[in-house]
């Protein structure tokens, strides 16, 4: 699993509101760093990393829900949940295909056609998921969701991405 990014400037005595900004913006950037790889689809680990980060982001948003107005919080959380769910369906198929493919050499000859048929079916479903993922990100881009999300977090926590400078572990 992809390692979580360090949260810069987070001290044990941090205020709840500023901690919310630092943690949520770090998890947000962590998630978005896998976006291009997920859309390219060359390595299934990119999609996995993005999904894991989206779950970390959701958990952070839930933990700090009281920092934000309830109505806008629900709206932003719903979109993040939509990302997790959309990626989740594709990830489940990636895992199933990989697992079944690994299983084939250990199976009796009699059992192989069934598993190969199942893999074919999952691969077909997986191609359909790619289209759903592309459509989701195209919509979020059209709506300027990334900019709005960061501005919303900054407004309620006082933390900006430019000051926080979130970065992957190896760059820290």
């Amino acid at each position: 699993m992809a390692r979580a990014w360090e949260v810069n400037g987070l001290s044990p005595d941090a205020g709840f509101r500023t901690a919310a900004g630092r943690i949520i913006l770090t998890r947000w950037r962590e998630m978005m760093s896998s976006r291009d790889g997920t859309l390219t689809g060359g390595d299934i680990e990119d999609l996995h990393a993005m999904r894991v980060s989206s779950r970390r982001l959701r958990a952070a948003m839930d933990a700090f829900a009281d920092v934000f107005p309830a109505s806008s919080f629900r709206r932003y959380l719903r979109e993040v949940k939509g990302i997790t769910d959309t990626l989740g369906d594709a990830r489940d198929l990636d895992v199933a295909i990989e697992h079944l493919t690994d299983l084939i050499p250990d199976l009796e000859l009699l059992d192989r056609p069934g598993i190969e048929g199942l893999i074919d079916r999952y691969e077909e479903q997986r191609r359909a998921e790619d289209a759903r993922i592309r459509a989701l990100f195209a919509r979020l881009d059209d709506e300027g969701y990334a900019e709005k999300f960061e501005a919303w977090v900054t407004k309620h926590t006082g933390i900006t991405v430019s000051r926080l400078r979130p970065a992957p572990p190896e760059a820290n």
Binding site: L103, L107, E108, L110, D111, R112, P113, G114, I115, E116, G117, L118
Partner: peptide
Amino acid sequence: RRADERPGIHTL
């Protein structure tokens, strides 16, 4: 019939 595909699924 695709009958040959069933045993593998039952095994799984």
